[in-house]
């Protein structure tokens, strides 16, 4: 059973260090911290963090954020003790940090999902996560398109607004059904890295979420960020 779901974007700039001297977007980080806080307070027996990655895999639960791949000067690359373990995919590292900062010390499962993982596999993965324990907390690192303006990473795509509105509508209503049918090809064209995460979520919560709360919904850089909290069943 799902104890609760926190949704946060897997955006590198969620890591405060990466934006340099300017915090740039503190309200987004505050919203994510609030969502993670609600998740931890929902008394889960285990929290599963789900985010996009280069492959579908479970990562060591003690893995932590390493920013070397995005900010070489910021990363920890200690070569004095031999080869270092491969760092977590950034979305999972960000999720792990959110849990740490929310004071969570219980069991955690860090699950990356490949960008091209078929919808059916994502839904199945969600259903599996649902049965991990009696009370499973879910931290979904997912966001929308990156094509919402001329300055957006993927430039302006007229299809982006409707794509993102469908995600937001599903989360707002608590009826996650529409996420099951997300168009994988369109998601790829719109640089919507969150697609696998949304579908894992849909697989984990086949029923309607009893209540949902949107903590942040905006696109300051042409990428649609949605931070929200879904109460458990």
């Amino acid at each position: 059973m799902i104890a609760g779901v926190a949704i946060c974007p897997p955006a590198p700039l969620l890591a405060r260090e990466l934006t340099g001297l300017d915090p740039v977007i503190p309200e987004l980080r505050q919203a994510c911290a609030a969502a993670a806080g609600r998740l931890v307070k929902s008394s889960p027996e285990v929290i599963a963090v789900v985010g996009p990655g280069r492959r579908t895999a479970v990562w060591p639960a003690d893995g932590r954020l390493n920013l070397a791949a995005f900010g070489p000067a910021l990363g920890t690359r200690d070569t004095s003790t031999g080869p270092t373990p491969r760092p977590l995919p950034l979305p999972l590292g960000l999720g792990a940090r959110l849990l740490d900062e929310a004071g969570y010390t219980g069991p955690r499962l860090l699950q990356s999902v490949h960008q091209d993982e078929p919808s059916a596999a994502c839904l199945r993965l969600g259903a599996d996560l649902r049965t991990l324990a009696d009370r499973v907390g879910l931290l979904v690192m997912a966001d929308g398109s990156a094509c919402r303006s001329l300055r957006a990473p993927g430039y302006l795509d007229p299809r982006a607004a409707a794509f993102d509105a469908a995600i937001e509508g599903a989360v707002r209503s608590g009826d996650l059904g529409p996420l099951r049918a997300m168009d994988q090809g369109l998601a790829r064209e719109l640089l919507a890295a969150g697609r696998p995460g949304w579908q894992v979520l849909a697989g984990a919560m086949p029923g309607r979420a009893p209540s949902t709360e949107i903590l942040y919904a905006d696109d300051p850089f042409g990428v649609f960020y949605l931070v929200s909290w879904l109460a458990g069943e």
Partner: peptide, 12 residues
Amino acid sequence: RTRPYRVEYDDV
């Protein structure tokens, strides 16, 4: 004519 988006390198 594309922009980098969340580009990462093990060693740029």
